[in-house]
Amino acid sequence: MDCRLGCGACCIAPSITTPIPGMPNGKPAGVRCIQLNEQNLCKLFGKAERPAVCGLFAATEDVCGSTDAEALWLITTLEAATN
């Protein structure tokens, strides 16, 4: 599956423990990444500054569901289950 442009769930729901430009300590779960623009697109996509964990994320139906809202719910649920 391809990412749904403008979804942004993977940039909001999970915690990221590695530095992100503008967020040197990473980001907690449920906090919008500072690098997510108004259209929910990554400002660092394709750039060396993008955290490796972000580049490794692969959209799959079991993680992203069929809607943006479902993706946010699923990723939030997975994040909570792994803490």
Rank of each mutant, 00 (worst) to 15 (best):
M1D: 13
M1G: 11
D2N: 15
D2Y: 13
C3N: 05
C3A: 10
R4T: 13
R4D: 05
G6M: 10
C7R: 00
C7A: 12
G8N: 03
G8I: 02
A9Q: 02
A9N: 03
C10G: 04
C10E: 02
I12A: 03
A13I: 04
P14H: 06
P14R: 01
P14Q: 06
P19L: 12
P19W: 07
P19M: 15
P19H: 07
I20N: 02
P21V: 10
P21E: 14
G22E: 06
M23Q: 13
P24L: 06
N25L: 10
N25Q: 14
G26C: 11
G26T: 00
K27H: 01
K27L: 05
P28F: 01
G30L: 08
G30Q: 11
V31N: 02
C33N: 01
I34Y: 00
Q35K: 14
Q35P: 03
Q35S: 13
Q35M: 14
L36S: 08
L36Y: 08
E38H: 09
E38Y: 00
Q39S: 15
L41A: 06
L41G: 03
L41F: 04
K43A: 04
L44Q: 06
L44G: 06
F45T: 05
F45W: 09
G46P: 05
K47G: 06
A48W: 07
E49L: 14
E49G: 04
E49Y: 04
P51S: 08
P51N: 08
P51K: 00
P51F: 02
V53P: 01
V53L: 09
C54H: 00
G55Y: 05
F57C: 04
A58L: 08
T60Y: 09
E61D: 12
D62S: 15
D62I: 08
D62Q: 15
V63M: 11
V63T: 11
V63N: 03
V63H: 06
C64W: 04
G65N: 05
S66C: 08
T67N: 04
D68P: 07
E70R: 10
A71H: 05
A71K: 01
L72Y: 08
L72D: 03
W73F: 12
W73M: 12
W73N: 10
L74P: 00
L74M: 10
I75W: 03
T76D: 04
T77L: 15
T77Y: 15
T77D: 14
L78T: 11
L78S: 10
A80T: 12
T82P: 01
T82E: 12
T82A: 13
N83E: 15
